[in-house]
Amino acid sequence: EPPTSTVFLDSCHFSQVVFTDVEKVYVPGADITCHYTLSEHITPRRKDWVGIFKVGWKTTREYYTFMWAPLPSSSSTGDAEVQQVLFKAYYLPKDDEYYQFCYVDQDGLVRGASIPFQFCAEAEDDMLMV
């Protein structure tokens, strides 16, 4: 019996960091704030980081830009306190490809990935309701 795909299905540790309030589109030229929550299964460490990756990345070395993840304040007891990281406009992608946030721990393991987002000016006519 050959090994099965359980290694894939057991995606548990990929979801230990959950990104929230991710916009589909960010305005080019503006800073963006990345929000996420840490599950109780992850112990954040000093060299964990949040990267912005082009969707379809193959190794974590392909990050477009990154910020060190702040250590949650020790006083916080809530396990779902929202963390945030600010990415300055200057360092953000300038094209309209899809990107995603990923949380990478200091061992290089990916602990969470966000839905994709783009940087582009929204069409003015997208306000119409249907």
Partner: peptide, 11 residues
């Protein structure tokens, strides 16, 4: 490669 696959599936 598993991680990158997972991230791509999410996207």
């Amino acid at each position: 490669s598993v991680a990158s696959h997972f991230a791509l599936v999410t996207a």
